[in-house]
């Protein structure tokens, strides 16, 4: 099933949610944004717990916003799992199938199937209050999937778990999602989770979606400075478009002239511009374009790579260097960045 959210609007006294996007058949769309941006409200609108002020929701072309929550056929995994404390694991999973009038036999069979799917075979009779956080999470997933929902919504499902468990469970969620190829909307504020899980990522801010795209494009070709700085680390420097050399834009900045390719055609000579590039796209050596000289002011060794902070005329830059470099704090350094890796944004009007 695909889900279309069509010009939906929900207005609160201090907040306005405006949405217009689609979750495609079988994909996992990660809804990513800082807290308070409206992710959870979006989810609750789709689930039917709150009504939009205008606009409509469609599933495979059929309108669903007129249906009450219990008729929408949408499975939800809640942030706090919301397992029913008075029911055991099996009865929790079977709750949906029972409510939707499945026969006792089908319901039982389906429950067993799901217990196996989330690797909890034999847990059916256990009390949910006795389970570990990770197990509760998997029961919540199984319960949401049991009645074969048209759509699966996950609301920060891993946020209550520790880092190690988060990593193994997100693999599990991905495996289950692929196996059932159920259309999924995954709300998170964790960029790594979004990058790993999402077929596409929708980056949200202040009640609207800034960009919706594949993880690679979101990361490498952010549409604006917010998306670029929200995901991953970034170097930014202000400047003015000096000239154009075919596909290349030449930007005059306080650290010298910087060349960039994307999207050069959107700007005119003289425009105030921000040049944006990732720390890992910087490299040492003088053989390339966009050479910048500075002084090392801090170094963080992280095992497989190192973060080096370089000051250039009062502007700090971060380099992410994969190989062991004999750079010491206080020494001079020259680095360069591929023009093809530099993005241009209009300068933020302050």
């Amino acid at each position: 099933m695909s889900l279309r959210i069509q010009t939906v609007e929900k207005i609160y006294p201090d907040f306005r949610l405006q949405l217009n996007f689609e979750v495609r058949q079988g994909e996992l769309l990660a809804l990513l944004g800082p807290s308070g941006c409206g992710k959870t409200t979006t989810l609750r609108l789709i689930a039917g717990f709150i009504d939009p002020d205008s606009g409509s929701l469609h599933m495979d072309g059929r309108r669903i916003d007129t249906l009450p929550a219990h008729r929408r056929g949408i499975g939800i995994v809640f942030q706090d799992y919301a397992l029913f404390p008075h029911l055991n694991v099996g009865d929790n999973i079977a709750f949906g199938t029972c409510m939707q009038g499945w026969s006792r036999r089908d319901s039982k069979q389906r429950t067993e199937e799901l217990l196996r799917l989330v690797s909890l075979k034999g847990y059916g009779k256990r009390k949910v209050t006795r389970l570990s956080g990770g197990e509760q999470q998997r029961v919540a997933l199984a319960r949401a999937l049991a009645p074969r929902p048209h759509l699966l919504l996950l609301d920060e499902p891993l946020s209550a778990l520790d880092a190690k468990l988060r990593k193994s469970l997100r693999k599990e969620i991905l495996r289950v999602q692929r196996e059932l190829s159920v259309t999924t909307l995954y709300v998170t504020h964790d960029q790594e989770e979004a990058l790993v899980l999402g077929d596409r990522i929708a980056v949200m801010r202040d009640g609207h979606i800034e960009q919706i795209d594949t993880p690679e494009r979101i990361y490498n070709r952010p549409r604006n400075l917010f998306v670029g700085t929200f995901l991953g680390q970034a170097n930014i420097i202000q400047g003015r478009l000096a000239e154009r050399e075919g596909e290349l834009a030449v930007v005059k900045t306080s650290v010298g002239l910087l060349k960039a390719t994307w999207p050069a055609e959107e700007f005119d000579v003289g425009d105030e511009i921000v040049v944006f590039f990732r720390p890992e796209h910087c490299s040492l050596g003088r053989d390339r374009a966009n050479r910048i000289r500075g002084r090392v002011i801090r170094k963080e060794y992280l095992g497989s790579h190192a973060l080096v902070e370089v000051e250039v005329g009062g502007e700090p830059f971060t380099l992410d260097l994969s190989e062991e470099q004999s750079l010491s704090v206080g020494s001079d350094v020259e680095f360069s960045v591929d023009p093809g890796r530099c993005c241009l944004f209009p300068a933020a009007r302050s």
Partner: peptide
């Protein structure tokens, strides 16, 4: 979230 979970699972 408990009643919401139940509603999403089809409980009227």
């Amino acid at each position: 979230s408990l009643p919401e979970a139940a509603r999403s699972l089809g409980a009227g």
